[in-house]
């Protein structure tokens, strides 16, 4: 049963039309973009017959491929680190009390609510001041470190929600049944919070693959990610190559959504 009473008559019609328009608004641009990526016309928004040329150009473009490969490396590296740190942090916050807990909790929230631009400025100045001290040159290291800095928070929020929904007594039951602390974690806690960890990891992956602003500020010459590379191309002058690259990025996003929905499905059937 739905919680709210069902509207009737004219208001119901209006509401359903509104919803239809919202979905049209959401999906028409995406579908049009996909269509135009096959268009044989240098003007990106005008149909000029079917072609696969732009995808061919993408495959042949050395800098595009390099940027794509960079993006993947950074996304994977930052996801792994942020999943480990974020999960440990989530467990600490949900299961323990310790000195500095409130400060940690607040600090963990900040990267989520701080505007991209501000965070970009923060990382730029930080690496400008400390690059010498840390021995880092702008590129893979600076981008990955920055991505981890915001991903930890998102991972921990997702994992925390999962831990909060888990009955604490399951761990006690495991210990009561002769499991050591580690065994209780390994055989009970970990499998039960795994959907949260996977969900958090997918979110971290998506955020890393999405980011333009922060990456642009900490990327070095000749070392950039695909979104920043594409963003640069758009500002230099649009070519249909961008349509093709965009569709590839779009498909990557879709694959991640599908995965995360699948994970969520596992989540709901598990707790049933």
């Amino acid at each position: 049963m739905s919680g709210v009473i069902t509207p009737r008559g004219a208001s119901r019609t209006l509401l359903s039309i509104n919803s239809l328009l919202v979905f049209l608004f959401f999906y028409a641009p995406i579908i049009l973009l996909i269509i135009f990526s096959f268009s044989d016309n240098r003007n990106v928004g005008v149909w000029g017959g079917f072609t696969l040329d732009w995808y061919g150009e993408f495959a042949d473009s050395q800098p595009t491929r390099k940027a794509l490969w960079n993006s993947i490396q950074i996304a994977v590296a930052s996801t792994i680190v942020s999943v480990v740190l974020g999960t440990l942090g989530a467990l600490a916050l949900e299961r323990f009390t310790f000195r500095g807990k409130q400060v940690f909790d607040a600090l963990l929230y900040l990267p989520i609510i701080i505007p991209d631009v501000t965070m970009a400025v923060m990382m730029l100045l930080f690496f400008a001041e400390l690059a010498g001290v840390l021995g880092l040159s702008k590129g893979f290291a600076t981008i990955t470190l920055s991505h981890i800095a915001f991903s930890i928070s998102f991972v921990s929020v997702v994992v925390r929600a999962r831990i909060a929904g888990m009955d604490e007594r399951l761990e006690e039951a495991a210990m009561d049944l002769y499991a050591s602390r580690w065994q209780a974690f390994r055989y009970v806690t970990l499998p039960l919070i795994m959907p949260g960890i996977l969900g958090g990891g997918l979110l971290a992956l998506t955020l890393s693959l999405d980011d333009v602003v922060i990456t642009q500020f900490v990327a070095g010459p000749g070392w950039t990610t695909l979104p920043v590379f594409v963003f640069g191309l758009i500002r230099k002058g649009v070519t249909p190559l961008i349509n093709a690259v965009s569709v590839v990025m779009l498909l990557a996003s879709m694959a991640l959504v599908a995965l995360s929905l699948f994970v969520q499905r596992v989540r709901t059937t598990d707790s049933a």
């Binding site: 007594r169 399951l170 006690e172 039951a173 499998p191």
Partner: peptide, 29 residues
Amino acid sequence: PPNKRPVNTVFQNYALFPHMSVRDNVSFG
């Protein structure tokens, strides 16, 4: 600690491991 005591508990609302089969639950200890 609980894992060193020769007592076992039936928990309120049972606290059965939701991701394990009945057999795995029972053989866990």
